[in-house]
Simulated assay, not measured.
Amino acid sequence: MGSYIRFDWAMKRLLRDKANFKVLEGLLTTLLNEKITIKNLLESESNQEEEYDKYNRVDLLAENSKGNLILIEVQNNNEYAYFQRMLFGTSKLVTEYINRGEGYDKVRKIYSINIVYFTLGHGKDIVYHGKTVFKGIHLNDILELSPFQRQTFKVDEVSQLYPEYYILKVNDFNKVAKTPLEEWIYYLNTGEIPEGAKAPGLEEVKEKLKIDSMNKAEKEAYYRHLDN
């Protein structure tokens, strides 16, 4: 049992508060390897809590300062069709966040961050990154953007226009955390923060997500959630 509040509970109750955005920004900055600033959280059809999902999953939709959409999802129970569900989630956002009659240049960039507490697929790593690349069948070259497209869309590669997926298989992590991303995964897995952790956001976890700082009713609800 960790000293800090589990991330899925924090996402439900605490990280939706602007004062705590630094925690989410720290995770995203560490994972995406660029400074992420959250402008606000959005309500989406796909992130409304359904009754049967109450303990199993939680998700949160953020918009960063560049106008990108970032869907963070925590899934506790085994779901064999989870890959398709990730696709469904991003597809829904693509269509939800464009107004009728707007040009395709207004399609938003989406990051889908999936923190899974079950064994998803078959692989040796703990973090996987998926993006869309168009490869020549005969010459094996990568299809690039034209200079005009680069300038207009302010990106360098075609893949940057498409949804990108990150999967963090946190249960599979069982070694000493050496990198900032491993420090985060250690916390996601154990509810503890490794000694001397330097990853952005973890300092804020220490300050704001202490189990001891919850009142009695909150603690009871939290432990009920853990039991479930």
Rank of each mutant, 00 (worst) to 15 (best):
L181Y: 08
K175T: 12
L181D: 15
D156M: 05
V158M: 10
P194V: 11
Y162N: 13
V158C: 01
K169R: 12
W184E: 03
F173A: 06
K154W: 02
K175Q: 04
V158A: 04
V158E: 07
V155Y: 13
F173W: 03
G196I: 02
L181N: 12
E182G: 05
E157W: 01
A177D: 09
A199L: 09
F173D: 12
S159P: 02
A197P: 13
K169C: 08
K175D: 02
E183K: 06
K169G: 03
E157N: 03
N174G: 01
K154H: 05
F173V: 04
K178T: 14
E157H: 05
Y166E: 10
G196V: 03
Y162K: 12
E164V: 04
V176C: 00
V155W: 10
S159C: 09
Y186H: 15
Y187K: 14
V155M: 09
N171A: 02
K154I: 02
E195V: 00
V155T: 14
P180R: 09
Y186W: 10
K178N: 15
K154C: 04
V155D: 10
T179H: 13
G191P: 12
V158N: 07
K169T: 00
A197E: 14
L181F: 11
P180Q: 07
G191L: 11
V158F: 10
D172F: 05
G191H: 13
E157Q: 02
I193M: 03
Y166V: 09
K198Q: 14
P194N: 09
P163E: 15
Y165I: 15
